[in-house]
């Protein structure tokens, strides 16, 4: 069943010529990484975290980055978010600052749910008069009407992540970067949030770069799954997920592709046992 659903594909050798500095023109990919490397530490004992990553993400595409510990997933998102600079190569993002969502909700505890969203709107340049209404709309969008005045600590884990999602959307970016956003949630809540995210993505057609170590999650959500090797992070393999959408975590197609990808993931991990 897995054949025909997934077509392995590699991106090595597809890097294209540079254009502009930092931002991309309206047409073309939403995010483009060109031979991006990142190393930490002094010149003598450099610790290479990412090694020549090249990746294009089309506008409206949902790409999952998958990898074991030490593959530099979070570092990669930081680079795309502009919180860090690559040691070599180029990171380009089409227009604007990408929104970033974390495993921990990272909501501000001194603000209510609604005010958290309004702060993002404010920083995105939305005039004061429109913020309240927009925040209420966004809360409704994530199925949290009436949560406007709630403090962060009054919300459950799943609700917090939904507010965090609404806050990310409030930034008005076409690119949403997600750093294992559902990893700390229980399975039931995670399943619900998968549905919500898929629904929102289909409705709004933003671009998603989603980092996870959960293979089934990657297959369930993504149009493409990119497997990273660890230490240093390199693109090991790539799958295009051609299952009908929306999917469910228990779908047979999801399971069989996840099994195939897990096999490759294990190979990547075992490689480290030998060396």
């Amino acid at each position: 069943m897995s054949t025909g659903l997934a077509a392995p594909r590699t991106t090595t050798g597809t890097s294209r010529t540079a254009a502009g500095t930092g931002t991309l023109p309206g047409t073309g990919p939403a995010v483009r990484l060109e031979a991006v490397s990142k190393a930490y530490g002094p010149a003598g004992a450099r610790n290479l975290v990412l090694d020549e990553i090249s990746l294009d993400v089309a506008p409206g595409e949902f790409v999952c980055l998958l990898g074991a510990s030490g593959c530099g997933k979070s570092t990669l998102l930081n680079l795309v978010a502009g919180l860090d600079r690559p040691s070599a190569g180029q990171v380009r993002v089409a227009a604007g600052r990408p929104a970033l969502m974390f495993q921990d909700h990272a909501l501000f505890p001194w603000l209510s749910a609604g005010r958290n969203i309004e702060l993002a709107l404010r920083l995105a340049g939305v005039p004061r008069s429109g913020r309240r209404e927009r925040a209420e709309e966004l809360l409704e969008l994530v199925h949290l009407p009436g949560a406007y005045g709630k403090r962060v600590h009054q919300l459950s884990g799943g609700m917090r992540q939904r507010v965090a999602l609404a806050r990310s959307l409030a930034q008005g970016s076409d690119v949403l970067l997600m750093d294992e956003p559902f990893a700390a949630l229980d399975a039931i809540t995670r399943d619900l949030l998968h549905e919500e995210l898929t629904r929102l993505w289909q409705e709004r057609q933003f671009t998603v770069l989603f980092v996870t170590h959960n293979v089934r999650e990657a297959v369930r959500l993504g149009q493409r799954v990119v497997l990273l090797s660890s230490r240093p992070g390199r693109i090991a393999r790539e799958w295009r997920v051609e299952l009908p959408c929306p999917r469910r975590i228990e779908d047979g197609g999801v399971a069989s592709l996840a099994t195939e990808i897990t096999g490759h993931l294990h190979q990547e991990i075992v490689r480290h046992a030998r060396t």
Binding site: L83, A106, F108, W110, L119, L123
Partner: peptide, 27 residues
């Protein structure tokens, strides 16, 4: 650090970051 990182990723840097994130967080 996560709160500061979240603030920076939303564009709250420099003085704006101090006023909108650092000061209220440290209240």
């Amino acid at each position: 650090p996560l709160l500061l990182r979240a603030g920076r990723s939303m564009g709250a840097t420099g003085l704006r970051g101090t006023a909108l994130v650092v000061v209220p967080a440290a209240l």
